[in-house]
Each structure stands twice: as structure tokens, then as C-alpha cells.
Design a protein around this nucleic acid. Structure first.
Length: 488
RNA sequence: GGCGCCAUGGUGCAACGGUUAGCACGGCAGUCUUUCAAGCUGCAAAUCCGGGUUCGAUUCCCGGUGGCGCUACCA
């Protein structure tokens, strides 16, 4: 049946910045909503007071915005909807789907500590699926509850027979024995809900039709389906997307270096490139298309194209996408990004926003074929727009080791100063005529001059560079370089 | 440990019973050039292993191995 006006959500928990994996999940949800004329809402899952860092929400919002992922509703905060979950838990309790649990909370030491200290009890008893409290008689419960006033959590009373089944758009039909499902906590003794409860209650309340999330939730989905049932609601369509792993094939985390989208933004990646890179992690068009403008991404996206295999994050490919977009973006789109980078580096000059805008656009077009990151523009800007740069060692060694150079460049400066016009062809004529008259190869002058002008061997074509720099600057820089060349 | 998911070159994806197993990134080589980058051309590089099913398996089934996930009063 056709998907019409779906309601989907992106539901990060503010325990860290927006990382690559979360961004990809958000992107898939966004594409799905756009593709089918649906609604994307944002929900902050901040029910874990221990780990929760409210100040991170702003960053997540900012990074989503940077990526161009706009939400239609929200953000909703689960921390502001607590009574909803409490009421749901109470009603499940009243209906007998849940029971109060008086066990002391299991001390959790974290995954790392857990692994290390467990070799001794490899064969030791494993947590029971059944909580002992589920068998308490009504009288016993009453006694602990009212009599002793003991604190309690609320656990879901998992069925012990049969199986639960659900459909996943990516992983297909799933069936899990109820016996495999433990009596999971739904409401902590603090009165705060666990993920299982709050997610389901909200997805029902917010009328979510498709739950698109990381595959790490696949194993928990049966519990949630049980909750939907107990709450008298129909489960949504599930679509679990494979995880993104680091180069060492473990889950992407801080120790893999930059994993937050904010870090990539700062490094000078373009949101277009990051998006294009991310959409191809765990999804493909079905053919060999890789460069996908937003409209086409939206037009072609479907859950059917989502893979079941975890993907390894490959920075080299991300950089390649960035190069593609850096070269292809219309200059008007690129200019503001360059401006931001230059401002950050303290190299921005206000007249570039006004009268010299066309000139800046030209300069940007000249250098962009040699950039991989936005940040590269600042390196170039320093050499192009200020005289504050050094002559790079390798460049000097390669192109300045010729005794004739000082004399030749002095003449070149004079010739350029006297050139009838200042454009590509007259610059070239001046240089080539000089080379011919002096009986040297033009390349000798071209390469030496380039280093004198921008300090490096890696640079745009010389005559175009001259035009952009302007006559005064060119002549001045050649003369300034003379002593250094002579010293070579 | 239990339960589950996954498995195509180093990496991301194609091939959904029949192809010389395709594309891209990366690597290497060549080419163009005024340096560098880009571009172009070429090269190396993969179906995890073992059984089935089938005329025929990358593809379907079973077992193994490996990776990952879940197994928390985290999400």
C-alpha cells in the first residue's frame, strides 16, 4: 500500500553531540518525510538525568540546521512530558500488564568495566528473564507497598508463551519467542520512564507512522511491540538502518577522531557533501549513481534501498565528495561559505561584501580547483590578499635555483609595469617576449614568478593569478622577492 | 554465556539462479600541463569456509567462522 503523509521522528538523546550515525538517521527520516509528503518531528529523549547534558541540545539543533535537515514539529522534550509516561505506567499496572518490582537496582558499571571483570564467572548465572517480584501475591505487594512503603520500579510482565512478531521494512518479518523477553523496567523507582516506555508512549501520542532508527534498536523492538499491544495501540512500521562503524569496525565513537558533524563543519566540509556522503552509507539508488543533488535524493529515496550491512566510515571518500561540491557549487552559493571561513580566520575585508564582490568571486573561482576543504581558502587568502606569507622551502629549491633569475625577474617587473594593459594576454605577452629576448624558456620565468607572487609551487595558473592580484601587487612582490631569489 | 542480525576488492555500493562479477573512493602507472590540483587512460585488488538444492550458485538452504547488536531502574 502506498505511503501517504507519514509522520516520522528523529529522537536523539542529549548525551553527546550530533554524531555521524545520528545525522544519517536524521537524514533518512527527513528524506522519507520529504519524499512522501510527510512530517518530521524532533524529540529530545532526555529521561536519563545522569547522562543528560541539556546544553548539548543547542548544538544538535545547530548541526541539524547546518545539514539542511529542517524539522516540521518540535523539538519536544520528554523531560516535559513525564506525567504522560507515569500515567501510562500506572494504567499498565492497573491492567495487570505490569507489576511493581522491589528489587534493588542492579549496579551498572558500564560496558567496559563489565567486560573486564567477568572472566571469572564466564559460566556464572545469567540474569533471569523473570523478576521474582512478578510472582508476589496481591497481599505481599500490598504489604510492601502500603505497609513498608518500599520504593519500587514498574516492570512489564512479559508473556511466557508464544511469540511476538513484527515487520521491519529493512530486515523483513521478525519473530521472537516471548520466553526470550525479560521483565523489563518501564518506570524507574525515581518515577522516570525508561526508553522503552517513553518512546512508545510518545510515538503513539505523536501518531508516528514509521519508526526509522538505528539497528541497535532492532533487538528491543519486540518489547516495544508488546507495549503497543498493552497500551491498545497498533505498532508503526519499523525500519532499522544499519550502523556506521569506525575504520576498526567497531561502533563509531569519540576515539575514532572527529565523529561529530560539527567537527566536520569546522574543518571546512560542505553540508551538501556530508549529506551526499551520509546518504550512501547504508542506502543506494540501486544503480551506480553517487552524486545526488538534494532534489534527486528526495525523489529517489526509499526504504527498499536500505542495506542490512553495517558500513565503515571512510573519510577519504567524504573528502572526495567535498571536492566534488567545492568544484561544482555555483559561486553564489559558495561565496557565503568562504566568507564565513575567512571571517573565522580574521582575513575578511568588508569591501568584499560590496564593491569588490565580483573580484572576490573571480578569485574564489581561481583557487577553488585546488581546494579540498573550505579551510583551504584561508590558506590561499593569506597568500592572495595579504603580503603576509613565506616562500616555501620546496618551492624555492625547485624553482629559484638559477643565477640568471634575479636579473630576469627585475626586467620582468619592469616589463609588467610598462605593459599596455593588465589582462591575461598582455601579462603573458610581456613574459614570453622577455623570455624570447633573453633566450630562456618561458617555464623558467613562469615558475619562478609564481613562487615570488604567492610563495608556493602549488598555485593556480600564473597569468590568471596576476590578473586577480593586480599590477601593483604583482610588480611589488616580484621586486620584494629579488633578494631572496639571489640568496638561493 | 544467551538471543539476534550481517558477510562481494582496503572502503562504500551494484549484480535480487546464468555477466569476462559492474561502479565509485583509495592505491599504483601513464597522459595533459606553466607548478600543483583537477581531468583523461590503464593496472592491481573481492564473492569468508564447508556442505547441500539445482543443468547452473555471489544469489536459495544447513553448519562453521568472523564482525556487530541486544542481553541496564542507558538510549
Amino acid at each position: 500500500m502506498p505511503t501517504v503523509n507519514p509522520r516520522v521522528r528523529f529522537a536523539p538523546s542529549p548525551t553527546g553531540y550530533l554524531h555521524i550515525g545520528g545525522a544519517r538517521t536524521a537524514l533518512f527520516n527527513w528524506l522519507f518525510a520529504r519524499r512522501y509528503g510527510g512530517t518530521l518531528l524532533l524529540r529530545i529523549e532526555d529521561t536519563d538525568v545522569e547522562r543528560n547534558r541539556p546544553e548539548l541540545v543547542e548544538g544538535i539543533l545547530h548541526d541539524l540546521d547546518w545539514l539542511g535537515i529542517a524539522c516540521d514539529e518540535g523539538p519536544y522534550y520528554q523531560s516535559q512530558r513525564l506525567t504522560l509516561y507515569r500515567d501510562a505506567a500506572e494504567s499498565l499496572l492497573a491492567a495487570g500488564a505490569c507489576f511493581p518490582c522491589f528489587c534493588p537496582p542492579a549496579q551498572y558499571a558500564g560496558p567496559e568495566a563489565r567486560e573486564g571483570s567477568e572472566d571469572a564467572e564466564d559460566e556464572g548465572p545469567r540474569p533471569r528473564k523473570d523478576c521474582p517480584c512478578r510472582n508476589l501475591s496481591a497481599a505481599e505487594r500490598e504489604e510492601k507497598l502500603r505497609g513498608k512503603g518500599l520504593p519500587y520500579a514498574i516492570r512489564f510482565q512479559a508473556p511466557r508463551e508464544g511469540a511476538i512478531r513484527f515487520h521491519d521494512e529493512v530486515f523483513g518479518d521478525r519473530e521472537v519467542e516471548n520466553a526470550e523477553i525479560e521483565d523489563f523496567v518501564v518506570l524507574r523507582s525515581t518515577g522516570l520512564p525508561t526508553y522503552q516506555l517513553s518512546a512508545v508512549v510518545d510515538d503513539i501520542a505523536m501518531k508516528i507512522t514509521h519508526v526509522i532508527r538505528g539497528a541497535d534498536h532492532l533487538s528491543n523492538t519486540p518489547k516495544q511491540v508488546l507495549l503497543y499491544r498493552a497500551l491498545g495501540a497498533a505498532p508503526p512500521v519499523f525500519a532499522h538502518v544499519p550502523l556506521i562503524l569506525g575504520p576498526d569496525r567497531t561502533r563509531l565513537s569519540k576515539r575514532h577522531g572527529a565523529t561529530s558533524v560539527g567537527a566536520y563543519a569546522e574543518e571546512g566540509f560542505l553540508p551538501e557533501a556530508v549529506r551526499n556522503f551520509l546518504v550512501l552509507l547504508g542506502w543506494s539508488t540501486g544503480d551506480d549513481t553517487e552524486l545526488l543533488p538534494t532534489e534527486e535524493m528526495v525523489r529517489r529515496f526509499s526504504l527498499g534501498g536500505v542495506s542490512r550491512t553495517n558500513a565503515v566510515f571512510d573519510r577519504a571518500k567524504l573528502e572526495w565528495f567535498n571536492v566534488q561540491y567545492l568544484q561544482q557549487l555555483p559561486v553564489d552559493t559558495l561565496l557565503p561559505r568562504v566568507e564565513a571561513a575567512l571571517r573565522q580566520a580574521g582575513l575578511w575585508q568588508e569591501e568584499w561584501a560590496g564593491p569588490q564582490k565580483a573580484w572576490l568571486a573571480r578569485a574564489v573561482d581561481l583557487i577553488r580547483p585546488r581546494t579540498r576543504l573550505l579551510a583551504d581558502f584561508t590558506t590561499w587568502a593569506r597568500a592572495f590578499f595579504t603580503d603576509d606569507f613565506d616562500y616555501e622551502e620546496p618551492a624555492r629549491d625547485k624553482f629559484w635555483k638559477d643565477d640568471r633569475l634575479p636579473g630576469l625577474l627585475e626586467k620582468l617587473a619592469a616589463a609588467l609595469e610598462a605593459a599596455p594593459a593588465w589582462d591575461h594576454d598582455s601579462c603573458e605577452r610581456a613574459l614570453r617576449d622577455l623570455a624570447a629576448a633573453e633566450g630562456v624558456k618561458a617555464g623558467l620565468l613562469i615558475n619562478a614568478t609564481r613562487v615570488a607572487l604567492v610563495g608556493r609551487a602549488v598555485a593556480p595558473p600564473l597569468f590568471e593569478t596576476m590578473v586577480v592580484l593586480g599590477r601593483d601587487r604583482v610588480v611589488r612582490r616580484i621586486r620584494q622577492a629579488l633578494p631572496s631569489i639571489a640568496a638561493c
